[in-house]
Simulated scan of single mutants.
Amino acid sequence: MSSHYFIGIPIENSVKEKCANWQQELRHSMSYKVWTNPHDLHITLKFLGDCTERQIDEWAAHLTKVKALPSFSLKAGPAGTFGDKKHPRVFYVNVERNNLLLEIKELIEEVGELLGFPKEKRDYLPHITLAKKWQGGESPIYKGGNYFNEQLELLIDRLHIYKIHPKSKAKYEIVATYNLKEDQRGATYKDL
């Protein structure tokens, strides 16, 4: 039997805590069917969908290439939305489109094509989902509130392959981890 998987970047605990505070504040003005469990907060790089264990093993073997990439920092925030500005279907934290992040995304898309996974056609908009499937209320961003304008510093030092458990409270299980190099700021994956 196969399961659904994705590749993503974990969020450090201090940023998870801030995002959880934003979720609590957001609950005062909006209701959503799905609130991301703070343990599950991440930046998605590629949704893999339904995969066999063999396919995940192939991904795992190819993703060792990212170990040569440098760790880096980027900014997250302010908050943003997908869908109607007043009643957005998704409320999230923006993530900076850093060149190193985009290189990692490109490498993953190239590996995916090699393994028979279609390349994502949409423009990559990195973000941290706080809530999805709007049910009621008005966006505090639409109302002109500035509570969600803060910027946070994120250290990007690893990525994971996650297995999705849709019926669990914390839905994402880490099945593989790839640490990025420390203090190698000048390298890019094209140098591999």
Rank of each mutant, 00 (worst) to 15 (best):
Ser2Gly: 12
Asp191Met: 11
Val34Cys: 00
Leu159Glu: 04
Glu182Lys: 15
Lys18Gly: 02
Phe82Ile: 05
Leu155Asn: 02
Asn149Asp: 15
His165Met: 02
Ile108Asp: 00
Ser3His: 15
Asn21Pro: 02
Asn37Met: 01
Asp50Tyr: 12
Val34Trp: 04
Ala61Ser: 13
His42Trp: 04
Ala68Asn: 11
Ile104Trp: 06
Gly49Gln: 07
Tyr189Gly: 01
Ile43Val: 14
Ile7Arg: 00
Thr177Met: 07
Gly49Lys: 10
Lys105His: 09
Trp22Val: 00
Tyr178Phe: 13
Glu96Leu: 03
Ile7Glu: 03
Gln23Val: 02
Lys121Ser: 13
Lys16Gln: 11
Ile7Ser: 01
Glu109Leu: 06
Leu26Cys: 08
Pro166Lys: 01
Asn179Trp: 10
Asp50Lys: 15
Gly8Asp: 05
Asn146Leu: 12
Gly112His: 08
Lys190Pro: 00
Ser168Thr: 00
Pro78Ser: 08
Leu102Met: 15
Thr64Ser: 06
Asn146Ile: 13
Arg97Tyr: 02
Leu152Arg: 07
Gln184Lys: 12
Cys51Pro: 02
Asp157Gly: 10
Ser31Asp: 09
Gln184Leu: 11
Ala131Thr: 01
Asn37Thr: 09
Tyr32Lys: 11
Pro10Gly: 06
Thr52Ser: 15
Asn98Ser: 14
Asn13Trp: 08
Lys18Gln: 07
Leu152Thr: 01
Asp123Ala: 07
Pro88Asp: 03
Glu150Ile: 11
Arg27Lys: 13
Ile164Gly: 00
Ile128Asn: 09
Asp84Met: 08
Glu138Gln: 13
Ser71Val: 03
Arg89Val: 07
Trp59Asp: 05
Gly144His: 10
Asp123Glu: 05
Lys169Phe: 08
Asn21Thr: 13
Cys19Lys: 01
Glu17Pro: 05
Tyr92Pro: 05
Leu63Ala: 07
Lys171Met: 11
Glu182Thr: 15
Asn99His: 09
Ala68Gly: 13
Gln135Asp: 07
Trp35Asn: 03
Asp84Val: 07
Gly136Ser: 13
Pro70Gly: 10
Arg185Glu: 14
Pro88His: 07
Val175Pro: 03
Gln151Tyr: 02
Glu138Lys: 15
Gly116Met: 03
Leu125Met: 15
Lys121Thr: 14
Asn146Glu: 14
Pro70Thr: 09
Thr177Gly: 06
Ala61Lys: 14
Ser71Phe: 01
Pro78Lys: 10
Thr52Gly: 11
Ile141Trp: 04
Thr81Asp: 04
Ser3Lys: 14
Glu106Cys: 04
Asn146Tyr: 02
Ala79Asn: 04
Lys133Gln: 11
His42Thr: 04
Glu153Cys: 01
Ser31Cys: 02
Arg122Glu: 13
His62Asp: 09
Ser29Met: 10
His42Ala: 00
Tyr92Asn: 14
Val175Gln: 08
